[in-house]
């Protein structure tokens, strides 16, 4: 049973075909990666998979449910969460509130419970706070729960974004360059964090990353994009040795030497 399935999706902006015929089938506890040079259309794929852009062709299924015409929040409701390449935290809120905000759509009290603060409200708020704290503790952010999100160091902002995505209780989580701008030590942390999310929490993960060493270490299956086309896919070993991939990354030289 696939958790996230993209069936031959394409998107066109004006005359430009940004992504062409992209397919993906992600199952529970699997970790896929999308790689490709700058401008290959990786983030565009993410934006289609999360409902921010509507694909002009093809369809997306989350947990078997067809997502045609759905808004991003419906993708999240169906069990998908993501992080962003350029960090998008709720900067005016504290770390704890950031996580609590991600619980909003799962809250089980209605408008009038909220206005009049009934017992249901108190019970539910308590539950949300406890669950959020649990998540923060799991990722060692509990001491900083009252910090404003934009006052966290860069690495922890990235971590908080992952925690926040987990708070929506997703089945699949999409990470857009989780290691961007990090030093090797921090990258090791991110790797172990991602593996924890995959192994311990049992989430399916799709990751975009430029850092090749990291991708080769964690990914079980890699798709390579170039100019919107899937030029290669397979296990890390297979992709690494694919001449097409080398060509895409190194340009015409590889091409020349190959011929």
């Amino acid at each position: 049973m696939s958790i996230l399935k993209a069936d031959h999706i394409s998107i066109q902006f004006g005359g430009l075909k940004a992504v062409n015929d992209f397919s993906l089938d992600l199952e529970q506890k699997e970790l896929y990666a999308i790689i490709g040079p700058n401008g290959a259309g990786k983030t565009t794929v993410f934006n289609m998979l999360t409902g921010i852009y509507q694909p002009t062709q093809g369809s997306i299924y989350i947990d078997g449910k067809l997502m045609a015409g759905c808004k991003p929040y419906q993708f999240t409701e169906a069990g998908l969460a993501r992080t962003f390449q350029n960090i998008r935290l709720f900067h005016g809120a504290t770390v704890l509130d950031n996580v609590k905000m991600a619980h909003s759509f799962k809250t089980d009290y209605n408008f009038f419970n909220m206005l009049s603060r009934t017992g249901k409200y108190h019970a539910e708020e308590k539950r949300i706070t406890e669950k959020s704290m649990e998540l923060l503790e799991m990722f060692d952010l509990q001491d900083k729960k009252n910090f404003f999100a934009n006052n966290l160091p860069y690495g922890e902002q990235r971590k908080l974004e992952i925690v926040r995505a987990l708070a929506t209780e997703p089945k699949v989580i999409l990470l857009d360059e989780p290691a961007a701008g990090m030093n090797p030590n921090e990258i090791d942390d991110v790797v172990s964090l991602i593996l924890r999310v995959q192994k311990d929490l049992g989430k399916a993960i799709l990751v975009i990353e430029h850092h090749m060493k990291m991708v080769m270490k964690i990914a079980e299956y890699i798709k390579v994009l170039d100019f919107g086309e899937t030029i290669s896919e397979g296990t890390p070993e297979k992709v690494q040795n694919d001449p097409k991939v080398i060509e895409a990354y190194l340009g015409g030289h590889a091409n020349a030497s190959r011929n």
Binding site: Y73, T76, A93, A102
Partner: peptide
């Protein structure tokens, strides 16, 4: 604080 992020956090 961030409408796009709010949307992807399941907020209608």
């Amino acid at each position: 604080d961030n409408e796009v992020a709010a949307d992807t956090m399941g907020i209608n």
